[in-house]
Each structure stands twice: as structure tokens, then as C-alpha cells.
């Protein structure tokens, strides 16, 4: 065997390496295909939504049997849902996270709680809806209302807050706590003075995720109080009472694409006579569901991006 032969690849190695190359290309294609499919679908949505996407779409109420105008009542309803569910899910979820990470010992109760958190996250959204209907709408007597829907969402999104609070707390080094305890500081004072300030940004990431989740959910609100359409007069201030039905972005999207048909004719505002819609009005009406989808998607992705950016910032700027 001469030197040049010694360093050439055998056919076995060549085969091995060419297979390696093909596998790499194939796996890359697979990954790319998944990403591309979604990007294509989303850009198609945006393309179809173009006729309605203007700044007037957001602050305007639906007009002419929902075939014109904007989606402000739906946006406002979603804000109500997010804020109200956050008011319940954030404190309870954060405290549950604190309990699990700071107080719980490794015993059967803790294992039970862990199991419950995992299962609570895995319960189908429609079962949460049934729970909301049984517990809040019927049993608690809240009726189909914003508050019942928000409480349902709060129960549903709580695992998100619990898990991320827990992760944020467990990232704080044990030595921080020990240093504090050695100074004679009590357990709760340590948590308040040392652990929470060092993990608050991580907890916030979870809270932001909760917001995005609550904004996007449809099934839990559709039988606990979301209304297909509520008519508002031009110029009227849009607001909901806590015990009232409401509109929400996610349900609006469902309703405008499933239950609702673009009307063929509209009453003329002066004569009251039914006149066919113009081509431009028809195009606008057909784009309304797409516009709603894009707005909903935008809201959810915005909150998630903020959460991801926050986490990235934390990872690069950690003090310890």
C-alpha cells in the first residue's frame, strides 16, 4: 500500500459520507417545508386581508349588518377578557409557583400538585368551557357574561403562569437564599426581598404568555358568554358590563367565517330601500374575517415575541 492509497477514502467511507450528506439535506428540507408551509399560509391570510387593513379598521364599530366598519367591540371584549383573567390567573398562578418551588417538600402532595398542573394544561379547551358553563354560568349564577368567560379562561391559562414562575424561581441560585437565611431573615422575607426581585422578569415572561393564550382562545368563551354580534349605534361609547355578553376577536373570527354570510342587499340609509352592494363594499365585507384573523394573529404573535425577547435579554444580562 503506497502513501496516496493510504489516505484515500475507501468505498465504505465514501458511501457512509454520501449518506450522511443526503440525510442532512433531507432533514433540512423537512424542517424547511414545515416552516415554509406556515409562512405561505400566513402570508396568504395577510394578502386576503389587505382590503380592510387600515387604521380605520381598529377603532370603528361594525356597520351595515357587519359588512362594513371595523372590529373595535371585538378588540375591546378581548381586552376585557385578558385583563380580567389576568387579575385572577396571575396572582394565584404566581403564588402556586412560589409554593411549588419554595415551600413544597418532596412528598405525595407535591407530586399530586405537579400531576394536576400537567393535567390542567392538557384538559381540552372545550372541557374547560363545559366546566365554566357548569361552575360559573350555572352554579355561581353569573350567567353568560364577560366575568364567567374570564374566570373560565383564568382557570385554563393558570398552568402557563405556574410553570414559568416555577422555572424563574428555580433559576435563582440556592446560595442567595442561604445567605439571606443566615442573616436571620424569615422565609417569606427572603422570598420577597431576594428571590422575587431576582426572578420578576422571568415571571413576567409567563404572564405575557398567559395574555397571548387568553386572547387567542375561542372554545372556552363561545358557550360562556361570547356574543356573535352586538349592535352599537354610531358614536356610542362601546363598553361592557361585567354581567353582560360581549364580543371577542377570536369568536368574531369564528362567527364571521362560519355562521355569517355577506348580505346581498343593504337598506339605503335615506330611503330604506334594499339596494345591492357595490363591488367595493362586497370585497370589503369578504375581507373582514381575514382582517380579524390577521389582527388576532398579530396580537398573539406580538405578545409572544415580547416574551421571547424578554427571555433572551434575561439570558444575556443575568447577574449571576
Amino acid at each position: 500500500m503506497n502513501d496516496s492509497q493510504r489516505f484515500t477514502k475507501t468505498t465504505f467511507t465514501q458511501k457512509k459520507e454520501s449518506r450522511e450528506k443526503w440525510v442532512k439535506v433531507l432533514l433540512f428540507m423537512v424542517t424547511l417545508m414545515m416552516a415554509l408551509a406556515v409562512i405561505l399560509l400566513v402570508s396568504f391570510l395577510v394578502h386576503k386581508a389587505l382590503p380592510v387593513l387600515s387604521l380605520n379598521f381598529f377603532p370603528d364599530i361594525p356597520r351595515d349588518l357587519m359588512s362594513a366598519g371595523g372590529i373595535w367591540p371585538a378588540i375591546l371584549g378581548t381586552i376585557y377578557l385578558v385583563v380580567l383573567s389576568l387579575m385572577v390567573a396571575a396572582p394565584v398562578g404566581v403564588m402556586a409557583g412560589i409554593y411549588l418551588n419554595e415551600y413544597a417538600k418532596d412528598n405525595w402532595l407535591t407530586r399530586l400538585i405537579n400531576l394536576a398542573v400537567i393535567n390542567l394544561a392538557g384538559v381540552p379547551s372545550i372541557v374547560h368551557a363545559l366546566f365554566g358553563l357548569g361552575a360559573f354560568v350555572m352554579f355561581a349564577g353569573l350567567g353568560e357574561s364577560v366575568i364567567a368567560a374570564s374566570l373560565t379562561l383564568a382557570v385554563m391559562t393558570m398552568p402557563v403562569v405556574i410553570t414559568s414562575t416555577r422555572e424563574a424561581l428555580s433559576a435563582v441560585p440556592m446560595s442567595f437564599r442561604e445567605a439571606s437565611w443566615n442573616l436571620g431573615v424569615s422565609r417569606w422575607q427572603t422570598i420577597r426581598g431576594v428571590v422575587l426581585p431576582n426572578s420578576i422578569s422571568g415571571i413576567l415572561t409567563g404572564v405575557i404568555l398567559e395574555v397571548s393564550r387568553a386572547a387567542g382562545e375561542t372554545a372556552p368563551i363561545m358557550i360562556t358568554g361570547a356574543a356573535a354580534s352586538i349592535t352599537f349605534r354610531q358614536g356610542e361609547t362601546v363598553y361592557y358590563l361585567l354581567g353582560e355578553k360581549f364580543m371577542a376577536l377570536s369568536y368574531h373570527l369564528y362567527y364571521t367565517s362560519m355562521g355569517w354570510k355577506v348580505p346581498d342587499k343593504l337598506p339605503n340609509p335615506e330611503t330604506g330601500e334594499m339596494v345591492p352592494m357595490t363591488q367595493a363594499a362586497l370585497e370589503y365585507a369578504q375581507a373582514i374575517p381575514y382582517g380579524t384573523a390577521v389582527v388576532l394573529l398579530g396580537v398573539v404573535l406580538l405578545f409572544n415575541s415580547v416574551s421571547i425577547a424578554f427571555r433572551y435579554y434575561l439570558r444575556t444580562h443575568r447577574k449571576w
Partner: peptide, 11 residues
């Protein structure tokens, strides 16, 4: 993972 299910349904 964050895309709401109603948007997927719409697609």
C-alpha cells in the same frame, strides 16, 4: 405553537 386554534381553523 402560539398561533390560536381558531386561526388554524380559519386557514
Amino acid at each position: 405553537a402560539a398561533i390560536p386554534s381558531v386561526v388554524w381553523g380559519f386557514i
